[in-house]
């Protein structure tokens, strides 16, 4: 008895949250909840962002200088802290995306033969 709601959700791999946050912010400034929703929506609800980890991650990225933040007002008139990609953040995103692709390809190569045998 399977419903659509029970489809498997994947917890994010260590380190991938940073990449996804940077990627999300390419489309413009967004607040924390907005970032989490965007990641969830764009992954067809497969990737689940732990809200508790989100903010420390944002904090970390801000500390690296890849994003910057300022308080603003949300769509429904709530005060919220909006994050924006910096120049170095864009460079970092390009760099990390490249790294990610390489890694996925490499992991794929490792996994393929095993599947052949099985």
């Amino acid at each position: 008895m399977s419903t659509r709601d029970e489809k498997e959700r994947i917890a994010l791999l260590q380190g991938t949250l940073d990449l996804l946050i940077l990627r999300t912010l390419v489309f413009g400034p967004e607040h924390g909840l907005g970032i989490a929703r965007a990641i969830q929506r764009q992954s067809d609800d497969v990737l689940l962002v732990d809200h508790g980890s989100l903010y420390p991650a944002l904090q970390r990225l801000e500390g690296q200088g890849w994003i910057k933040a300022k308080w603003g007002v949300s769509d429904n008139n709530r005060r919220a802290r909006f994050y924006e990609l910096t120049r170095s953040g864009r460079l970092q995103l390009t760099h990390e995306t490249g790294q990610w692709r390489k890694m996925v390809a490499a992991i794929g190569r490792v996994l393929e033969p095993g599947e052949m045998e099985g």
């Binding site: 607040h31 909840l33 801000e62 200088g65 709530r78 005060r79």
Partner: peptide, 25 residues
């Protein structure tokens, strides 16, 4: 580059706003 470290209260305010927005939704 020296920046004033962010205050815990600012962080708490952000979390608070997150919860309020989620409640709205």
């Amino acid at each position: 580059m020296f920046r004033r470290p962010r205050r815990m209260s600012d962080f708490s305010a952000e979390v608070q706003s997150h919860i309020e927005m989620e409640t709205d939704r």
